[in-house]
Design a protein around this nucleic acid. Structure first.
Length: 421
DNA sequence: TCTGGGGTCCTAGGACCC
DNA sequence: TCTGGGGTCCTAGGACCC
């Protein structure tokens, strides 16, 4: 049976989430900023229209914001995560074959719908998601994931498409591929774009028709897969069920540069607490912990330091993570230096219930498990950080900036939307 | 003053083994 | 004079994704 994929992609997801709970934002330019209110990570169509570029630092577009009355939001990942869950649950009403690809995208296997009017089916999905969650989505359909991606992009930029494009068996296929710049093809980043353009390959159609051997040599098997996918040969199957993760990172820019070792330790202890919570939520334990500290990367050449600890026994106990992590912070810190960012990388993850014990390592595993579970329960009921470790500091000064965060409408009782009738 | 965060996969090269 | 040919594992770096 011929394969067919549909890619459902939320339009301007973060900006759309903000709009769901504040209808006054309808029709107005909105942008959402990254952590620490640094760069633009999402824009409504109106914001794109007035010339806000993706990824620009907020301070560089102050005038643009002012002149166009752009509504600015700090990112509110609690809200976006919950809205994402609602969209994905809604999609699973249509078919169980759903691969959640990212916070705002999902691939559906629609091979079984051959013969039906897929464009019409796409419109039904689109209407339903809008009605059930308030989020506008676009739908792209093709014989491979890469083609579905292109169809989706085409749907977004073609007003007449009503948000759905089906490339499978489309007579306009070559024309549509010619309209997609090579850098917009899924799997082609800045590095490959440079190489391809130097060879005169500028759009998806030309890339599709490029000699396989050249591609293999220049872009490896990954590039080759992309080309085959453009030709309609599916190389990337739907991935159902989440793969076991390889590692975990928690890192943040500090709200201001840190020069004091105690503050630095508080920050790292906080990141370790977050990491511990994530580990326990996924029933994982960690064997290797890396702590890294960064100074100003725009001013210094050697701006990063890192230290790695191998734990005697894999753990997810926040106390242990903090104890090992802070020792490394202490030995890396040099007085007089300004630190701008820090983080923790956990690798060698194993399932928590399959941890290999250590003969000479005395620690009451059961007691640890009960304590951590207690802390997690309190925090999930009464709000994050209701119970926290003293090492993480009380009311820390280094916390990230988020001056314009909207309410966490769907996950906090004290931040519900208010409706006046 | 102000520049995000969290991932995955592939490749090349070296060490080591038989 | 001569000095194989695989495997495997690890690591660093580079490419990409959202």
């Amino acid at each position: 049976m011929a394969e067919l994929y549909a890619l459902i992609d939320c339009n301007n997801f973060y900006a759309s989430c903000e709009r769901v709970f504040d209808p006054r934002l309808e029709g107005r330019p909105i942008i959402v900023l990254s952590n620490n209110d640094g760069c633009v990570v999402a824009r409504s169509n109106e914001a794109k229209a007035v010339g806000v570029a993706m990824g620009v630092p907020a301070f560089k577009i102050r005038d643009l914001i002012e002149a166009n009355d752009v509504q600015v939001f700090s990112s509110n990942y609690t809200l976006y995560g919950d809205m994402s869950r609602r969209v994905m649950e809604s999609l699973s009403q249509f078919t169980p074959e759903v691969e959640i690809y990212s916070i705002d995208e999902a691939f559906l296997d629609v091979s079984g719908f051959v013969g039906r009017d897929l464009t019409e089916y796409g419109r039904t999905i689109r209407r339903s998601i809008r009605q059930w969650t308030g989020i506008p989505v676009s739908v792209g359909i093709g014989e491979t994931k890469t083609l579905a991606k292109i169809a989706n992009k085409t749907a977004k930029r073609t007003p007449g498409s009503e948000g759905v494009v089906n490339l499978a068996g489309s007579a306009d296929r070559d024309e549509i591929l010619s309209q997609i710049a090579v850098e917009d093809v899924w799997g082609v980043g800045p590095g490959y774009t440079r190489a391809l353009e130097a060879k005169g390959i500028k759009n998806a159609r030309q890339l599709r028709d490029t000699d396989e051997r050249w591609i293999k040599k220049r872009m490896g098997v990954v590039g080759l897969r992309t080309v085959l996918e453009l030709r309609g040969q599916s190389c990337l199957p739907l991935e159902l069920g989440r793969p076991t993760r390889q590692g975990m990172t928690v890192s943040r820019l500090f709200g201001h540069p840190i020069t004091d070792v105690e503050e630095l330790k508080e920050a790292v202890a906080t990141y370790l607490s977050t990491a511990g919570e994530k580990l326990r939520k996924e029933n994982l334990a960690v064997g290797v912990v890396t702590i890294f500290l960064m100074r100003d990367r725009f001013k210094e050449i050697h701006y990063t330091q890192a230290a790695t600890v191998e734990l005697p026994v894999a753990t997810n106990d926040t106390r242990e993570l903090i104890r090992h992590g802070l020792r490394e912070v202490g030995s890396m810190f040099s007085p007089g230096r300004e630190y701008k960012k820090g983080g923790v990388i956990l690798s060698d993850l194993v399932r928590a219930d399959e941890v290999q014990g250590h003969l000479f390592y005395e620690m009451d595993r059961d007691r640890s498990r009960r304590l951590m579970r207690g802390i997690d329960r309190v925090n999930s009921r009464l709000g994050a950080e209701t119970v926290k470790f003293a090492a993480a500091g009380v009311n820390p000064k280094w916390k990230v900036k988020a001056c314009r965060r909207s309410r966490r409408y769907t996950t906090r009782w004290d931040e519900l939307a208010v409706v006046r009738a």
